[in-house]
Write a protein that binds this DNA or RNA. Structure first.
Length: 470
RNA sequence: GACCCCUUCGUCUAGCGGUUAGGACACAUCCCUUUCACGGAUGCGACACGAGUUCGAUUCUCGUAGGGGUCGCCA
C-alpha cells in the first residue's frame, strides 16, 4: 500500500504566480495527526471499543499527534451519563489519556455531540443550500446520495469500491431536529480536523456514505483504517453478556492489571515486529504501525489474557502488588497493620496466581489466626500416627531457634528431622499445614519467617491440639 | 436477498513464488522441587476446497464453501 501515514503531506504548488503554469513543485507540509475515539454511551466500555481507543491512542502518541475523545450521544433515548462516565473510567484505567475531550477541554469543543446542535444546524444549512436534502412527510430530513461509485482508501483493507448505490437516501435529521450518526460523525470529523479514522470494521460498509457527505461539504475525507472485530471463542459476535467483553466487569473487577490488558488487546489484530509478545506501553507505542493491522477478525482467548496478566503480576514489586491487591483483599475481609509484612505476603505467592482475585485464598492465613484446616489434608495427616510426634519435635526445635530468619527456620527444621532420622521433606508438609491450614503455598520457611516466631509456635500448638489430637 | 470484508496448528499469529511452514497461548510428557507454582526440555498440532498462472504455489488470479459485517428516524 502506498498511502503511508502522512505525517508529511505533499501538496501541489499553490503559488503558480512564482513558478508559472503547471509548476512541478510540491510543498511538503508537516501535518500533525489527529485521531479520535468516538464511543456512544449506551453501556460499558467494550473490549472492541477499548482496542479501537488503544490503536488510536497508539497512533497519536507515536506520531506526537492529538488524541481526541468525542462522546457520540445523539440518541437521547439510549444514552446515559452513567455509561459515559463508565467509558471514561475504563479508559483511564487502561491508561489512555486524551488531549481534547471531556474533562480536559480543547479548541474543538464541546466534545459531547448532544451539545453541538448549532454546529450541526449550520452544516445542515450548507446541504440545504446545495439542494442535497429533502423532507419526509413527518419532517425527517434525508440526504440525497450522489449515486456514483465511491472508493474507500483504507489502510487495512486497501481500495474498496462501492458501486452507485440503490439504497434509499439516508435520514440525517429526525423530525425533532436532532441529527443522526452518519451526519454528526462526518461533521465532527471535519470540524475537529481528523486526519485519520481508525474504527471497527463494522463501519466499512457505511463508509461510502460518509465519503459522499464529505464530498457534499467539499471536504477531504480522512484516511481510514477499519480494524477487524474481536469475536467470541466460538466465532460469534461478542456482546455485552459474553465473557471478557466488558472492561469494568471482566477486567477491572476480575483482577486484571491494566498493563496486561493493554498488551493483550494489542495482540488481537496486530503483530508488532518484535521478538516477544510481551511489550510495554512504550514499546508498543514505538512499534505501532496502522498499516500492519490485520484484516481478519480475531477470537478472544481468555487463557492467553490470563497468561499476560500472570506475567505482569509477577514482575510487580511487593509494594506495587499490594497496592493492586488491596481492594481484592479487603473484599474478602482481610486486614492488617503492617504494610511491609502484607506486601511481603502477597509477593511470596505472586508466581502462583494469574489474577488478583486469586490472591486472598493464597494469603488469608497471613492475616488471621483462625484460618480453617482443609478437611482432606486433615484426613491424610491423621492417617499416619507418627505425624503428631514429628510436628511436636519440629516445634521444640523451632522454639530453640536463635535468629528468626528463613535460614534459621530451615536449620531448626533440619536439626529436628536429623534427630529423628527423617528427611526435612517429611516435616515440611506438616509445618505448612499447621501454619496455613493448607497443603499448598509459598515456602514453609517464608511463611514462618513472615508471621514470626511467636505465631509460628502458637499455630503449631493449635494444629496439634485441634487437629492432631495431641 | 443485495453489497462489503475475511480464511495458516484448538487460539493469536510469522510468512509477502522455492522454508524440514517459524513463534506464543493451551494441552501432554520429562526435569527441577518440602507443596502449589515458576522455570527448563521435549512432544502434539495448520496452509478450507477446486481450477488456473508458473519450472515451481501457503504466497498471484478466478470460482466454491465457510465465517464475519452492512443495508435504521442505533451508533
Amino acid at each position: 500500500m502506498n498511502w503511508r501515514i502522512p505525517a508529511i503531506v505533499a501538496t501541489p504548488c499553490f503559488i503558480p504566480a512564482l513558478c508559472g503554469q503547471d509548476c512541478p513543485h510540491y510543498f511538503f507540509l508537516i501535518m500533525s495527526i489527529r485521531v479520535r475515539f468516538a464511543p456512544s454511551p449506551t453501556g460499558d466500555l467494550h473490549v472492541g471499543g477499548a482496542r479501537t481507543a488503544l490503536f488510536n491512542w497508539l497512533m497519536a502518541r507515536k506520531s506526537g499527534g492529538t488524541f481526541i475523545l468525542r462522546v457520540e450521544d445523539t440518541d437521547g433515548a439510549r444514552n446515559t451519563a452513567e455509561a459515559a462516565a463508565g467509558i471514561i473510567k475504563g479508559m483511564r484505567w487502561l491508561g489512555l489519556d486524551w488531549d481534547e475531550g471531556p474533562e480536559v477541554g480543547g479548541d474543538c469543543g464541546p466534545y459531547f455531540q448532544s451539545q453541538r446542535k448549532d454546529i450541526y444546524d449550520s452544516y445542515f444549512k450548507k446541504l440545504e443550500d446545495a439542494g442535497r436534502v429533502y423532507a419526509e412527510a413527518d419532517g425527517a430530513m434525508r440526504f440525497k446520495f450522489s449515486r456514483t461509485a465511491i472508493t474507500v482508501h483504507d489502510l487495512v483493507c486497501g481500495d474498496v469500491t462501492f458501486a452507485p448505490t440503490e439504497e434509499p437516501d439516508m435520514t440525517i435529521r429526525r423530525p425533532d431536529g436532532s441529527y443522526i450518526f452518519h451526519f454528526v460523525n462526518v461533521v465532527d470529523d471535519i470540524e475537529m480536523r481528523m486526519t485519520h479514522v481508525l474504527r471497527g470494521e463494522d463501519h466499512l460498509s457505511n463508509t461510502w456514505k460518509h465519503i459522499d457527505l464529505f464530498n457534499a461539504f467539499g471536504a477531504t475525507p480522512p484516511t481510514y483504517a477499519h480494524i477487524p472485530l474481536i469475536l467470541n471463542p466460538d466465532g460469534s459476535k461478542m456482546s455485552k453478556r459474553d465473557e471478557g467483553s466488558a472492561i469494568e466487569h471482566s477486567y477491572m473487577n476480575a483482577g486484571f492489571l491494566p498493563a496486561a490488558v493493554f498488551n493483550y488487546l494489542c495482540m488481537l489484530g496486530w503483530t508488532p515486529k518484535a521478538e516477544s509478545e510481551k511489550l510495554s506501553r512504550e514499546e508498543l507505542t514505538a512499534l505501532f504501525d496502522a498499516d500492519a493491522i490485520h484484516s481478519s477478525n480475531a477470537k478472544f482467548d481468555l487463557k492467553k489474557a490470563l497468561w499476560f496478566n500472570a506475567q505482569y503480576l509477577r514482575e510487580l514489586s511487593p509494594e506495587e502488588l499490594l497496592k493492586h491487591a488491596l481492594p481484592f483483599l479487603a473484599a474478602k475481609g482481610l486486614a492488617w497493620t503492617n504494610d511491609t509484612m502484607a506486601a511481603a505476603a502477597v509477593h511470596s505467592v505472586r508466581e502462583k496466581v494469574s489474577l488478583l482475585t486469586e490472591l486472598p485464598e493464597w494469603v488469608h492465613y497471613f492475616f488471621r489466626e483462625d484460618y480453617p484446616f482443609e478437611a482432606d489434608v486433615v484426613t491424610k495427616l491423621k492417617a499416619k500416627p507418627e505425624n503428631a510426634g514429628l510436628l511436636k519435635a519440629a516445634a521444640e526445635q523451632l522454639a530453640l531457634a536463635g535468629e528468626w530468619t528463613e535460614q534459621g527456620v530451615h536449620d531448626a527444621v533440619e536439626a529436628a528431622a536429623k534427630a529423628l532420622s527423617v528427611k526435612p521433606g517429611a516435616m515440611m508438609p506438616l509445618l505448612r499445614f499447621a501454619l496455613s491450614g493448607q497443603s499448598r503455598g509459598p515456602g514453609v520457611t517464608t511463611i514462618a519467617h513472615l508471621i514470626g516466631k511467636e505465631k509460628t509456635l502458637a499455630r503449631i500448638e493449635r494444629a496439634l491440639v485441634e487437629v492432631m489430637g495431641a
